[in-house]
C-alpha cells in the first residue's frame, strides 16, 4: 500500500518534467549560445547597453518600492485582523480575496480611470483648489507604485493573516496584564510572530511586481520601461531569442537573488530567534 504512491504521481511528474523543467534548462542553455556556438555574448550585449542596466535597476526599484508600500498598508490590516472577532476576521479575508482573484487586467484598467485626468484623484484635488488644472498620474513611476501596491496588497495580507490566525490571543493578553503597552506588545510579540508571514509576502510581492507585464506597460507607459517589456520586445519585435532568453535568466536571477537576500535578512540574529 505504502509504495503505491508513485503511479499516481507519475502523470504530473512527467508533465512537469517534460513541459516545465526541460524548457527551463533549455532556456538557460540557450541564453549561453550565439549562432550555434557557446558564448557569453548575449549577457555581454545586455550589460554593455546602459539603457538595459537602467531598466534592470528600475525593475528592482519598482519591486522594492512596492514591497515597502504593501508592508506599510498590510501591517495595519494584519493588526486589525488580530484585534477583531471571528465575524470581522472573515470579512477581512473575504475582502482581500475579492481583489486578489479579480483579473489583473481589470484592476489595471480601474487604475487608468483612477489616475487619469478625469479620474477621482484629479477631480477631488481640483474641487479642493489644491490644483488649478486637471492632471494625470498615468505614465509616472509614482502612479505605477500606487497601482502595484493595491494589486499586490493581498499577497502580503494573506500570509500575515495565516500566521496570526494560528496564534492564540492569550499571548498579547498576558503581556497586557503584565503591564505592556500596545506598541511594546506590537514590537516584542506581534512583529516577531509575523516575520515568516512578512517574508513570504515580500517574496510574492517582489516576484509579482517585477514580472507584471500588463500593468507595467499600461500604467508605466512608454517612458517607464521594465525588464518584461524588454523580453517581449526582443521576442516579438526584434526576434532575438537568445538575447531574450538571457534577459529572462537575468530576471530570474534578480527575483531569486532578492529572495535569498530577504531570507538571509530574516536569519539575521535580531530576527533569527523568532523564525
Amino acid at each position: 500500500m505504502r509504495s503505491s504512491g508513485i503511479p499516481y504521481l507519475l502523470p504530473m511528474l512527467v508533465l512537469s518534467g517534460l513541459f516545465f523543467v526541460l524548457p527551463l534548462v533549455l532556456l538557460i542553455l540557450f541564453s549561453f549560445t550565439r549562432d550555434g556556438a557557446v558564448s557569453l555574448q548575449n549577457y555581454a550585449a545586455f550589460f554593455e547597453d546602459p539603457f538595459n542596466v537602467k531598466v534592470l535597476t528600475a525593475t528592482a526599484r519598482l519591486g522594492l518600492e512596492t514591497v515597502a508600500g504593501t508592508t506599510l498598508l498590510g501591517l495595519p490590516v494584519a493588526l486589525l485582523y488580530w484585534h477583531s472577532g471571528p465575524k470581522t476576521r472573515q470579512v477581512l479575508v473575504f475582502l482581500s480575496l475579492v481583489p486578489m482573484l479579480t483579473s489583473n487586467v481589470v484592476r489595471t484598467f480601474a487604475w487608468i480611470v483612477i489616475l487619469g485626468r478625469q479620474g477621482p484623484i484629479s477631480q477631488t484635488l481640483m474641487a479642493l483648489g489644491a490644483t488649478g488644472a486637471p492632471f494625470s498620474l498615468l505614465f509616472t513611476e509614482f502612479g505605477l507604485v500606487l497601482t502595484m501596491t493595491q494589486i499586490d496588497l493581498p499577497l502580503i495580507i494573506l500570509p500575515l493573516v495565516a500566521v496570526l490566525s494560528g496564534t492564540r490571543r492569550d499571548l498579547s493578553d498576558a503581556a497586557a496584564t503584565a503591564g505592556a503597552g500596545p506598541w511594546r506588545i506590537f514590537v516584542t510579540i506581534l512583529l516577531p510572530l509575523m516575520v515568516p508571514g512578512l517574508l513570504a509576502g515580500w517574496i510574492l510581492v517582489f516576484a509579482s511586481t517585477s514580472a507584471s507585464f500588463v500593468t507595467q506597460a499600461v500604467i508605466g507607459g512608454a517612458r517607464n520601461v521594465y525588464v518584461p517589456q524588454l523580453i517581449y520586445r526582443e521576442v516579438g519585435i526584434l526576434f532575438d531569442w537568445p538575447l531574450a532568453s538571457a534577459i529572462a535568466v537575468i530576471l530570474l536571477v534578480l527575483t531569486g537573488g532578492t529572495l535569498l537576500a530577504l531570507a538571509s535578512l530574516a536569519r539575521h540574529p535580531r530576527f533569527a530567534r523568532y523564525v
Partner: peptide, 30 residues
C-alpha cells in the same frame, strides 16, 4: 500612545482595506 495605536490599527487598517477594494467598485461603477 494607546490612542495613537488604536488610530493606526482601526483607522489605517480600514483605510488600507478601502484602498484595496475601491478600484473594484470604481471599475464596476465605470
Amino acid at each position: 500612545p494607546v490612542a495613537l495605536y488604536n488610530l493606526v490599527v482601526h483607522g489605517f487598517g480600514w483605510l488600507a482595506m478601502a484602498f484595496l477594494v475601491a478600484p473594484i467598485a470604481i471599475a464596476l461603477i465605470m
